[in-house]
Amino acid sequence: MMRTFLFFLMVGSVFLQVSFFPAFAFMRSIPALLPLMVLLVVLHTNRFSTTFAAAALAGFFADAFSSHFFGFWMIIAVCIVVLGHWFLTSYGRLPIFRKA
């Protein structure tokens, strides 16, 4: 259930970024939602394989809408997961994201 929700969340964020948020350009710039969502998911859950797969899937969708080579956004998303997971397992978990 959690995994499906995460997948939908990540893929949905890519579609929102590509087709919905350009209309909300603030100071002529649109914040990158994908890296932000990946970071939030890493902070929220400690299941490495789930976040890794969700990030890779979101990166794939982002690459499909990109002029960069296939893998550009996948690598960025996966790197955020790996680094975020490493940081949290090495230096502790933020209490605000800990499950009750």
Partner: peptide, 17 residues
């Protein structure tokens, strides 16, 4: 495949903004 979804989102984004 994703064109209908993108079209809807773009239209909604324009309207909401």
């Amino acid at each position: 495949f994703t064109l209908p979804l993108q079209r809807t989102l773009w239209q909604e984004g324009s309207d909401v903004s």
